[in-house]
Simulated assay, not measured.
Amino acid sequence: MQRIDNGTYLTVNSDDLVELYAYPTDPGTPWIRVNFVVSIDGAVSQDGVSGGLGTDADKTVFAALRGLADAVLVGSGTVSAENYGGVVVSDEVRAARVARGQQPVPPVVVVTGSANVDPTAAVVTDAEVPPIVLTTSDAPEDRVRALTDAGVTVVRGGETLSGHAVKSMLDELGLYRVLCEGGPGLFGSLLEADVVDELCITTSPTMAAGSAGRVSTSDSAVDRPMLPAHILVDDDGTMLVRWVSNRTS
């Protein structure tokens, strides 16, 4: 993998990735980074899942991003579609996290207004660290009870889960380095609230066509200017760009 720097290609190693994708030293408030992989023609998935678009470079950066995060934020629909399990990190990454003052393994934080998470799903049963579910005050009591009985931490907010509400709940939990992995509806709500600090987008060297959607969806369009922080390319044509919000750059 190489970094494009003023027309020059510089080789990038694992230590470089940690530096390139480092969060602010002391965010003070949740810094929300979103990560997606798309095809050249903009498809967000193949056969209904994003994993089909993944390349070796994408998987390497994906692991690096998870290793740096305090929490992995995801919508319940994506948890189900992608069969999410808990985050797994290497011993080396675990040691680096502890040295930075982070927990050894980041939890998965699931956003769902109706507490719609199966207590027997892999995200609950196949996780070193129990997940956290962010939900509303109107979430069905039986679902909440089933999740708490399974060891899940359930945090209830107000009647809706806007992007502002999600950020506020993350703040209350002390989770400041946040990696959002989708889906498009959650990303859209965060964009509407203007709480997305950066987007890491991988363009897989393939065309997909089909009926796959885009990385973000919402009821209304928004305008959120971004600036490129760096561009990485791999020998197979994979391109990885880190975009930072114009208001936080």
Rank of each mutant, 00 (worst) to 15 (best):
T135I: 02
E82G: 03
F187D: 04
I4P: 09
A96T: 04
R97S: 11
D26H: 14
I132N: 03
N83I: 12
S204A: 15
G28Y: 12
L53F: 02
D235A: 15
D15G: 12
V37C: 00
P30Q: 02
Q102I: 08
G28P: 08
V129H: 04
P27V: 03
V108F: 03
D15M: 08
R143A: 04
G157D: 01
V109P: 07
R242N: 09
V72T: 03
R143W: 04
D149F: 09
A64G: 10
N246R: 15
V124E: 01
S218W: 12
P104M: 10
V233M: 12
V74N: 00
D194C: 02
T55C: 11
L134V: 00
L232T: 00
N246I: 09
S249Q: 13
L173Y: 06
V49I: 13
G183A: 05
S220C: 09
G210Y: 10
M239S: 10
R143D: 08
L17N: 02
V124D: 01
V152Q: 02
A57R: 08
L68Q: 05
V166K: 07
T217S: 15
G52H: 06
S168C: 06
P205E: 04
N6R: 14
D223R: 15
T217H: 11
D56H: 01
D197Y: 00
G213L: 08
D5A: 14
T120H: 14
I40H: 00
V111Q: 02
A96M: 07
L240C: 11
G7V: 06
T202V: 12
W243E: 10
D138R: 11
D223K: 13
T202M: 04
G67C: 03
P140G: 07
A229S: 14
T148W: 07
V89F: 01
E82C: 01
E128W: 02
V154E: 10
D56T: 10
D236A: 08
A127T: 00
L170N: 05
V241Q: 11
Y21E: 07
S220H: 14
R3K: 14
R214N: 09
A122M: 13
P30L: 03
R214C: 09
E141Y: 05
P24I: 00
V110Q: 05
P131T: 07
V74A: 06
V241R: 04
G151M: 09
L10S: 13
S216K: 03
K59Y: 02
V38Y: 01
V233L: 12
E192K: 12
N6Y: 10
D194P: 05
S80W: 09
E82A: 05
H230W: 08
T120W: 12
S14Q: 15
R94W: 11
V44H: 05
L170G: 02
T120V: 13
L173N: 00
A150M: 03
A64W: 01
T11W: 10
Q102G: 11
G77N: 13
L53V: 08
G182D: 07
T25M: 11
L173E: 02
G75W: 04
V155Q: 10
D26T: 14
Y21P: 07
L240H: 11
G174T: 10
V123F: 02
E192Y: 04
V124P: 01
G151N: 03
V133L: 09
A193S: 12
Y23W: 00
S50W: 04
S189W: 01
T60V: 15
N6C: 09
A22P: 01
S168W: 01
G237K: 06
F187T: 11
